[in-house]
Design a protein around this nucleic acid. Structure first.
Length: 200
DNA sequence: TACTGGATTCACT
DNA sequence: GTGAATCCAGTAA
């Protein structure tokens, strides 16, 4: 498997989000396939909308790991994108775990395979990701590999797990729906259940 | 210094 | 479908 370099992330955020689908993320001994991503650019729902101490990494870097705590209990992992000076990041929303399943079941306190890493907070729990990974360069503790897209059947894209409320949310989300289809979903700002699949 | 609310998840109805 | 858990970044004063 070919390892992605930091330079891979120095391009359009939406393109990175789509290209990351099917890639393999390796953290320590754990491996997973990225099956859902979301592109965050300069829109008001994004930390990239305004530069703050926390979000500066999205403005100043590409190919870095951005981890933040949400709702006081869950971490979310992003990879920064675009050239320096252009803010952007891709949120990793879901992963298909590929090994250490028993360990992950323990960490997640569930036995259901589809419930192990099917959400940004869940996958951070499963892979033990927290703020100690924030600001690290991709390629060290966290590596991403190209994989010739050999998907097992893994349905994701849970349209019920939608709740951005009334935040203005214009960016794109990408799912692997099944073995063959990769879908680009346009988020409906008011009702995410009505979000539309744009292409395959 | 104090207050507000969130790129979520889970238990419960 | 609804509400609670939980903490800290961002903001206002």
């Amino acid at each position: 498997m070919k390892e992605l370099s930091k330079e891979f992330f120095k391009q359009d955020t939406v393109k990175v989000a789509k290209k990351l689908l099917g890639k393999i993320i390796v953290i320590g001994d754990l491996k997973g396939r990225i099956v859902e991503t979301e592109a965050y650019g300069k829109d008001p729902a994004s930390h990239a909308f305004k530069r703050t101490e926390r979000s500066a990494i999205m403005f100043d870097t590409y190919g870095h790991v951005y981890v933040y705590l949400i709702y006081g209990m869950y971490n979310c992992i992003n990879f920064t994108t675009e050239k320096e000076t252009v803010p952007g990041a891709v949120l990793i929303r879901a992963v298909e775990p590929l090994n250490e399943i028993e360990l992950i079941k323990q960490r997640r306190k569930t036995n259901k395979k589809d419930n192990l890493c099917s959400g940004p907070g869940k996958l951070c729990q499963a892979f033990d990701i927290d703020k100690r990974y924030n600001n690290l360069v991709i390629g060290n503790e966290i590596k991403i590999y190209d994989d010739k897209f050999k998907l097992n059947h893994f349905k994701i894209g849970q349209s019920s797990r939608i709740g951005i409320k009334d935040a203005l949310h214009l960016e794109w989300r990408f799912y692997i729906i099944d073995n063959e289809h990769v879908s680009k979903v346009k988020i409906n700002q008011k009702n995410e259940k009505k979000s539309q699949i744009i292409d395959n």
